[in-house]
Amino acid sequence: MPIPNPGPDEVRLRIKAFALNRAEALFRQGHYIIQPQFPSKLGYEASGVIEAVGPGVDESLIGKVFNTIPNFSFSSYGVYGEVAVVPVSSLGTYPDHLTPEQGASIWMQYLTAYGALVHIANVARDDFVMLPAASSSTAIAAMEVVKAEGGTAIGLTRAAKKKADLLSLGYDHVIVSADEDVVKRATEITDGRGARIIFDPVLGSGIEVLAQTTAYKGIYFAYGLLDQRPTPFPVWPTMSKALTLRGWAFPELFRDAEALKKAKDYIFKHLSEGTLKPTVGKVFALDQIAEAHRFMDSNDQIGKIVVKIE
């Protein structure tokens, strides 16, 4: 395709790396919040160097390194490719010690985790937090945020082969749902208190079990729908535990300028200190993009899947 020129309030990035997200797989499959209008772009997160700016944009940005904050719609923008035009408002920065692959693996996962756990739930020392889909990049990011705030992170995975790797990443406990009684193990780990926070991207029938692991007046965040089957409402746990069920999506932060600034400052500070460190699970070349998506569909990854542009 021809190299696109940036329009007003846009820049063109020469991409160094871009990351894959579940949102993009759902969009590809027709299960996302928005539907594609063909020909459609794809991709939220990338790192690269600005090589051109549109009218009204500071020309001193040319030659500088940025990454993208996913505050745009696939109906207008996308970062899969060697170059991408994005709004200047979507530009983010990351610490110099991170690689381009790590730089492309920041905002989606950490904004999602920070917004729910810190901005809303005020996760604190002695809190137990249950993290389903523990090998996903967002769950790993959430684990790091929980640990940074002094809480206890409990990972939940279906794959026993991932348990050792997840513990080595920093989870305090990992429950293998295929082999263990989730409610019993959660009760043991929390000394009967239950988890104050559930951070769930899966939903489906699993919500009934997870709701039973919560503490009294706990909060259950639903931030994804990896299980496309119907999600029942957990009536009895919700009533008996005075449980709050809360839908969450990180664009909620974009409606509050002060909250968004706090989120960006928090994430950059902890990235700089090394408290947060993006986990890159596997790197593909651009001509392997279909294979990269198939790998994401396999659920075998631990951390972010990234495409590196040579």
Score class of each variant (00 low, 15 high):
Asn5Val: 05
His293Glu: 01
Ala121Asn: 08
Leu210Asn: 09
Asp300Gly: 14
Gly194Ala: 07
Pro100Ser: 06
Ile219Leu: 08
Lys64Gly: 10
Ala263Tyr: 02
Val88Pro: 13
Glu24Ile: 01
Asp265Lys: 11
Ile207Phe: 12
Gly224Gln: 04
Gly92Lys: 08
Leu253Phe: 03
Glu252Arg: 13
Gly115His: 06
Asp181Gly: 12
Ile289Asp: 06
Pro234Gln: 12
Arg255Trp: 03
Phe254Thr: 05
Ala17Glu: 00
Leu286Gly: 08
Ala259Glu: 01
Val49Ile: 14
Met143Asn: 01
Phe295Pro: 14
Gly224Pro: 13
Tyr80Thr: 04
His97Asn: 15
Ile34Glu: 15
Met108His: 11
Tyr266Met: 00
Gln29Thr: 04
Gly54Ser: 06
Lys184Tyr: 12
Ala19Arg: 00
Leu276Lys: 03
Asn122Ser: 15
Lys269Cys: 08
Ala160Leu: 13
Tyr114Lys: 03
Ala178Thr: 14
Glu149Ala: 11
Ser105Lys: 00
Val123Tyr: 02
Ser136Val: 02
Ala148Asp: 09
Glu252Lys: 12
Leu225Asn: 14
Ile33Pro: 10
Gly30Thr: 13
Ser47Trp: 02
Ser89Gly: 15
Thr152Ile: 13
Val183Gln: 07
Ser205Gln: 15
Gln35Pro: 09
Arg246Asp: 07
Met296Lys: 02
Tyr110Asn: 01
Asp96His: 09
Glu310Arg: 15
Phe66Asp: 02
Thr68Val: 06
Leu210Val: 02
Ala259Thr: 05
Thr275Phe: 11
Arg125His: 14
Pro234His: 11
Ile3Lys: 07
Gly43Asn: 08
Lys184Asn: 12
Glu180Met: 07
Thr190Gln: 07
Asn5Tyr: 07
Leu167Ile: 03
Tyr266His: 08
Asp256Leu: 10
Pro100Ala: 04
Arg14Gly: 08
Glu24Ser: 01
Ile106Lys: 00
Ile69Thr: 09
Tyr94Asn: 08
Arg196Asn: 00
Thr275Ala: 07
Phe27Gln: 02
Ala142Phe: 00
Ile140Ser: 01
Ala121Met: 05
Thr213Asp: 00
Ala249Lys: 11
Leu91Arg: 12
Ala215Tyr: 04
Leu253Gln: 06
Thr112Ser: 13
Ile106Pro: 01
Val307Asp: 01
Glu180Leu: 10
Gln29Arg: 15
Ala290Tyr: 09
Ala113Gly: 09
Ala164Thr: 07
Leu166Pro: 03
Phe27Gly: 08
Lys184Ile: 06
Phe18Val: 06
Ser47Asp: 05
Ser168Met: 10
Val49Asp: 01
